[in-house]
């Protein structure tokens, strides 16, 4: 199948082919393949789902059903920096809600949205297991703990400054 998605190059699809090949004898492998595919493309646009459907001989509707069921799969492209605010109980009672408010205020976007410049995405999750450091925000998987709303302002400013250079 030819690449129909403009932005994605053949190399990424070649990697996907390899993943599908590796999983071909594994029973119930769809979720594992989707994880890997999201790792390759950053998200799971329809083209990628359709490609997997054809290669794995699974109905596209089933793949779509799985992708939309699980919160970790996304069909939207994310920003370069994803801020994930932990709204698990330990973080919530320590004020992670205020961190989220601050983030939304600073960036002018809501949860699940990306800034127009493609730099920032805000996500919320439930417990990354670092409750001892509550309240916690991860930025592209790096955990930042014991945060105050002011720290958010600084983190954003630092990233913006680094991006300018």
């Amino acid at each position: 199948m030819a690449c129909t998605c403009g932005g994605h190059n053949e190399a990424l699809f070649a990697q996907l082919d390899e993943v599908i090949e590796q999983h071909k004898d594994m029973r119930g492998s769809l979720i594992s393949v989707l994880h890997k595919a999201q790792g390759i493309f950053g998200y799971l646009p329809e083209e990628v789902q359709a490609y997997i459907a054809e290669k794995m001989d699974v109905p596209l509707s089933e793949i779509y059903g799985v992708v939309t069921f699980y919160a970790l799969f996304t069909m939207k492209k994310k920003g370069k920096y994803t801020f994930n605010v932990c709204l698990g109980t330990a973080c919530y009672v320590k004020g992670s809600g205020k961190l989220l408010d601050k983030l939304q205020e600073e960036l002018g976007i809501g949860v699940g949205e990306t800034t127009e410049d493609g730099l920032f995405t805000i996500e919320a999750c439930r417990c990354v297991g670092a409750c001892g450091l509550a309240p916690v925000v991860t930025v592209n998987d790096k955990v930042h703990g014991h945060l105050k709303p002011e720290d958010i302002t600084k983190m954003i400013a630092d990233i913006r400054a680094a991006e300018q250079n």
Partner: peptide
Amino acid sequence: IRLGAGAF
């Protein structure tokens, strides 16, 4: 090993 994908 099988991975979950964020569904409680």
